[in-house]
Design a protein around this nucleic acid. Structure first.
Lengths: 218, 218
DNA sequence: GGTGTGTATACTGTATCCAGTATCCAAAAC
DNA sequence: GTTTTGGATACTGGATACAGTATACACACC
C-alpha cells in the first residue's frame, strides 16, 4: 500500500490572491490606472480583507505595487533611471549564470537551451504578453540550468518588476523573429567554454536590449 | 516660513517588529533552538498578533525563518548545498558591482572604499557579530557606490540569509587582521580600470571565502 | 512493555470590528 | 471668484474573535 500524501502543502489563501493579482497584472487586466482597494477586492473574491491585505503588501514589497496617496495600491511606475538599474541587475544575474554554464560546458544543457529557444520563438504569437512570456522563458532557462535557487529567485524578482510594462520585451517583440540568431549566439558563446567570453556576450546582449528600450522610450 | 514636514513617513508597527527580530537574530539573542510563536511575541511586545504575523511572514519570505512543524517559526537551517549557491549569488552581485566600478574608475569612490576598509578593519572587536558587521559593511560599500538600488537590495537579501550563522564572516574573522591586504587588493583591481580583471578578482575573493567556509565546516 | 486510539492543547489562518487619518467636497467668508 | 474651513467619506492599520487542524499526551488494550 502506497498512498499519496494528501495534504498538498498547506496553502494559504493569501497565496491564491497573490497569484490571481499577478496574472491579472501580467495579462493587462489590471492597468496603470486601476486602484486596488482591499475592501473591494475582498468583496469581489468573497473573502475577508486579511489575506487580500497580505497579498497586496507582498506585491508592494516586491516592487510591483505601491501605495497610492488616495489610498489603495497602484502599479509601481518605474522611472527611467530605475530601468537602467534594473538592466544592470539583470546583467549581474544572467551573465553570472552564463559564466557558470560556460565553465560546466554541459552538452545536455546546451542542447536543452537550443531546444527551448527553438520552441519559444516558433510560437505564432501576436500579443505583447505572449512575446514577453516567450522571451522570459528563454532567458529564464539559462538561469534555471545553473540550478541555483537564489540566482533564479533574483531573476524572477527582477523580471516581476518590469511586469507591468513588459519592460524586457517592449522592444524585442518588434523583431523577435530576427533575434533568434541572437539567442542562439548566447548558447554558442557558452559552448566555447570560455567563461569570460560567455559573460561578456550576455552583458552585451542585455546592454543592447537596454539601448533599444531607451531609444524606444525616446 | 519653512516648516518641516512632521509626518516622518508613516511607520508600520510591523516594520518595528521586523527590525527587532532581525537584530535579535543578529545578536544571537534568538538562537537555532528558539521557536517564535505569534501569540508569545505579541504578548511580550504588548501588541496584537497582526503586526507580529506580518513581520514573521516577511522574514519567512526572505528565507531567514521557516515554519516549524510544531507551529511557530524557527531560524532557517541552511544546507551545505545552499551555502554554495549563496556564494555563487554573492559572486554575481558583487563581481558585477566591481565591474561597474572599474568601468567608472572614479577616484573619489576608490578612496572612499579605501577609507571604509581602513576604518572597519581597525575596530578592536572581539565578538563574532562585530567582525561579521565589519566585513558586511566593507563589502556593502562596494555595492553602495554603484548606486543601483536593485543590486544593493539583492546584496542585503543574500547577506540576510546567512545572518543566523554569520555565514560570510565565520572564517574571515579568524584572520580578519590579515585580510586587510585582500580587501585593499580589491580596490587595486578596480583602480586599474580593467573591467574583466576587477570582476575576476572579486569572484576569486568570494570563492576563497567559500573554500575557507567549507574547510571550516567539513 | 509496546502499540494504537481518544482527547486536550497549542497555534494558526481567516473573519470581523474598531479607531484613526487622509482625502474630497461643498458651503461660507472674503 | 478665490480661498478657507468644517464635515462626510473612504480606507487603512491594528485588535479581537472564531473555527479548524495538527501535535502531544495519557490511557487502554494486547
Amino acid at each position: 500500500m502506497a498512498l499519496k500524501s494528501i495534504k498538498s502543502e498547506r496553502r494559504r489563501l493569501a497565496d491564491e490572491v497573490y497569484e490571481q493579482l499577478m496574472s491579472a497584472i501580467l495579462s493587462g487586466e489590471i492597468g496603470p490606472d486601476d486602484r486596488l482597494v482591499q475592501e473591494k477586492l475582498a468583496a469581489e473574491m468573497e473573502i475577508s480583507r486579511t489575506p487580500v491585505r497580505e497579498a497586496l503588501m507582498r506585491l508592494e514589497q516586491e516592487g510591483v505595487l505601491t501605495t497610492s496617496p488616495r489610498g489603495g495600491f497602484v502599479l509601481y511606475r518605474i522611472s527611467e533611471g530605475e530601468i537602467r538599474e534594473l538592466y544592470q541587475a539583470r546583467a549581474a544575474v544572467e551573465s553570472q549564470a552564463a559564466r557558470i554554464l560556460a565553465s560546466q560546458n554541459d552538452g545536455f544543457k546546451n542542447s536543452e537551451l537550443r531546444a527551448t529557444i527553438e520552441r519559444e520563438e516558433n510560437i505564432s504569437a501576436t500579443s505583447v504578453e505572449a512575446y514577453f512570456n516567450a522571451n522570459r522563458i528563454i532567458h529564464r532557462r539559462f538561469v534555471e540550468l545553473v540550478e541555483n535557487r537564489y540566482l533564479l529567485e533574483m531573476f524572477d524578482n527582477i523580471w516581476n518588476r518590469g511586469i507591468a510594462f513588459q519592460l524586457f520585451a517592449a522592444i524585442e517583440k518588434i523583431d523577435l523573429s530576427n533575434s533568434l540568431g541572437d539567442h542562439m549566439a548566447l548558447v554558442d558563446a557558452i559552448e566555447t567554454g570560455d567563461k569570460t567570453a560567455a559573460l561578456d556576450v550576455f552583458i552585451e546582449h542585455i546592454q543592447n536590449g537596454f539601448d533599444l528600450q531607451m531609444s524606444a522610450l525616446g
